[in-house]
Design a protein around this nucleic acid. Structure first.
Lengths: 217, 217
DNA sequence: GGGAAATGTAATCGATGATTACATAACGAA
DNA sequence: TTCGTTATGTAATCATCGATTACATTTCCC
C-alpha cells in the first residue's frame, strides 16, 4: 500500500519554515479539520479548514471540486464511524434474540447520535450536500437498513410479532428512533420537560414501548 | 387598532417613481418574501428579501437587528399556520374518541410537514435561530404539546390504554410522527423504497400501528 | 536528467451579513 | 400651521466566504 511518508524534502530552500511545500495528506487533514469544526459546534467552512491545516484558502480546491464535495467526504467518514459503532453493539446481542438485537440497535443508534450531534446531523439531513452523490454513503446506509430488516424477519420467523406488515413495522421503528434522535438534537426534548439526565432512560423506555407494541401478546 | 393605511403621501416629490419613500409595512413584506423564498427551496438571505421588497440591502436592519431575528419572525408565522391547521383538523374529531383524535393530529401534522417542507424545517430544526428567543413560538409549541397530552389523558381515563407511563407514550408518539416527517423531509423515505404515491398511506399505516401498540388488547 | 503531472500560493471576483453616516418622511406638541 | 423628534430608507463600506485563474514549487516517472 502506498502510504506515503511525509518524505522530508531533500533540499530545503526555505529560511525558517518547518513544513514542506507539499503537505503530506492534505485531503485527510482537511476532512479531519472539518469533522472537528463540526464537533465544536462551528460551521464548516472551507477556509477555516484550510486555516487549520495551515494552508492557503485555495489549496482545498485541489482536493475537492467544491465545498459540497468536502462535506460529502466528511459525511462518508462520519457515516463509517456510525455504522461501525452500531455493528460493534450488535455483536454483543445474540442473533437468536431479535428483540434484544432491535433494542441494542436502537440504543447504539441513539447513543452515537447523542454523542456526535453535529456528525449525526450531517449524515442524516441531506441539507449539506446531495446525498445521492456518494456511493459509499449510500452503501453504508443500505447496510444499516438491511440490518434492521434482518432483525424483523428473524422475529417474524420465530413468531414473535403480532400480525402486521413487516415494512410498516420497519419504517415505524426507524421513524421512532430517528425522531427521538432528532428531537434531542433539535432541542425538543427539553421543551418536552425531559431533563438531560433522563434522556438515556427515556430512550430505553421508548424503544421498549415500541417493542411491546409490536410483540405478540 | 392602529392598522395604518399606506397613507398616500400628501406631496410627491419624485419625478417618476410610484412607490413612496416609506414602504407601508416593510416588516410584513420582508417576512412574506422570506417565507416565499423558503417555499421556493431557496436559501433565505436578507438581501434577497430586500430585493423582492424593492428596497435597499440595509433597510431590513431597521426592522430586524440581524438575520436571526428575521428568521425568528418567519418561524413564528410558519408555526402559527402549522398550529392553526392542526387545530382545524382536530375540530373534526370528536373529543370522546381519543384514538381518532390522535390519528387526526398525526395525519394533519404529517400533511402540513409534507406540503410545507421548508417551513417545517425552519420551525422544527432550531438551526436557523435560537428557538428560546421567541415567546410566541414557545407558546404555540407548548399548546400543541398540551393538545397531545390531553388526548392521551382522555384515552387513559376511558381505560383504552395498556398500562404504561403516559409521558413515555406521549414522547414516543411524538418521536414517531416527528421522525416520519423528517425522514420524508430529509429524503430517507425514498432510500427506504417508499414511493412518493405511497407516503400518505404509509403515514396512516405507521400511525395506526402505533395506536394498536398502545391500545389495550 | 528532464519534462509532465500534482499540489500549493497569490490575487481576485461576486455574494452575503453587518455597520455607519446621511436623507427623507411621518408624527405630535406648541 | 410649524417645527423639532423619531421612524424609516439609502449609500457606502467592511470582513468573510466560496470559487476561479495564473503562477510557483515539488514530485513522479520515463
Amino acid at each position: 500500500m502506498p502510504a506515503r511518508q511525509p518524505a522530508k524534502p531533500r533540499a530545503r530552500r526555505n529560511t525558517s519554515e518547518a513544513r514542506p511545500y507539499h503537505h503530506g495528506d492534505l485531503r485527510r487533514v482537511l476532512i479531519d479539520a472539518a469533522l472537528q469544526l463540526a464537533a465544536e459546534g462551528a460551521e464548516i467552512s472551507v477556509r477555516e479548514a484550510a486555516r487549520r491545516a495551515a494552508v492557503s484558502p485555495g489549496a482545498p480546491f485541489r482536493h475537492f471540486p467544491n465545498r459540497d464535495a468536502l462535506m460529502s467526504a466528511v459525511a462518508e467518514e462520519a457515516q463509517r464511524r456510525f455504522r461501525a459503532e452500531i455493528e460493534v453493539a450488535l455483536e454483543q446481542a445474540p442473533a437468536a434474540d431479535p428483540f434484544g438485537r432491535f433494542r441494542a440497535f436502537g440504543l447504539a443508534y441513539l447513543r452515537w447520535a447523542r454523542r456526535n450531534p453535529a456528525h449525526f446531523e450531517i449524515i442524516s439531513t441531506g441539507r449539506y450536500f446531495a446525498h445521492g452523490s456518494s456511493a459509499e454513503l449510500t452503501r453504508d446506509n443500505a447496510e444499516l437498513i438491511a440490518l434492521t430488516e434482518g432483525i424483523l424477519i428473524e422475529a417474524a420467523k420465530q413468531g414473535l410479532l403480532r400480525p402486521a406488515d413487516l415494512k410498516r413495522i420497519q419504517i415505524a421503528g426507524r421513524a421512532l428512533v430517528y425522531g427521538f434522535a432528532r428531537m434531542n438534537l433539535d432541542g425538543h426534548l427539553s421543551r418536552w420537560g425531559v431533563e438531560e439526565g433522563e434522556i438515556e432512560r427515556m430512550a430505553e423506555g421508548v424503544i421498549d414501548l415500541f417493542i411491546a407494541g409490536i410483540a405478540k401478546v
